[in-house]
């Protein structure tokens, strides 16, 4: 079981994902924008971040770049969880060094299964740019 930070500007989605993950036995922390995400990463030190892309202010890719460029946060596993689901979107996530890209909508069993795999897998090595 892991400590998972769910980051999305839509409260309904955060609520839904939180319920699913809690049923799977995970501890869930919420953030509703990029700034709050960075703050929660500092105070809560999550094992995994499920990160939306389209948010006002800092978007998911901005957060990804910030967290993957800092020594103390680059080894946190980050999966993009987004409605942007084209091949180009997936390539962008992986090129930005996300550990994985999950397309919404996703059913609850699949999400729990993927989260278990991500928590077990070592984070990818981050390459400096």
């Amino acid at each position: 079981m892991g400590k998972i930070l769910v980051v999305d500007d839509e409260p309904d989605i955060v609520y839904l994902i939180k319920k699913i993950l809690e049923k799977g036995g995970h501890k869930v922390i919420e953030a509703y924008n990029g700034e709050e995400c960075l703050e929660k990463v500092k105070t809560e030190k999550p094992d995994l971040i499920l990160l939306d892309i389209m948010m006002p202010g800092l978007d998911g890719y901005d957060i990804l770049r910030i967290l993957k460029s800092k020594e103390d946060t680059k080894s946190i596993t980050i999966a993009i969880l987004t409605a942007k689901s084209s091949d180009e979107d997936k390539i962008k996530s992986l090129d930005e060094q996300a550990d994985w890209h999950i397309s919404k909508p996703i059913d609850k069993d699949k999400l729990l299964d993927m989260v278990d795999w991500l928590l077990k897998s070592p984070p990818r090595k981050v390459l400096e740019r």
Partner: peptide, 13 residues
């Protein structure tokens, strides 16, 4: 692995 999968996705596109 992630590198091979990412690049294969580009080839698929």
């Amino acid at each position: 692995d992630i590198l091979s999968v990412t690049n294969s996705l580009k080839t698929k596109v």
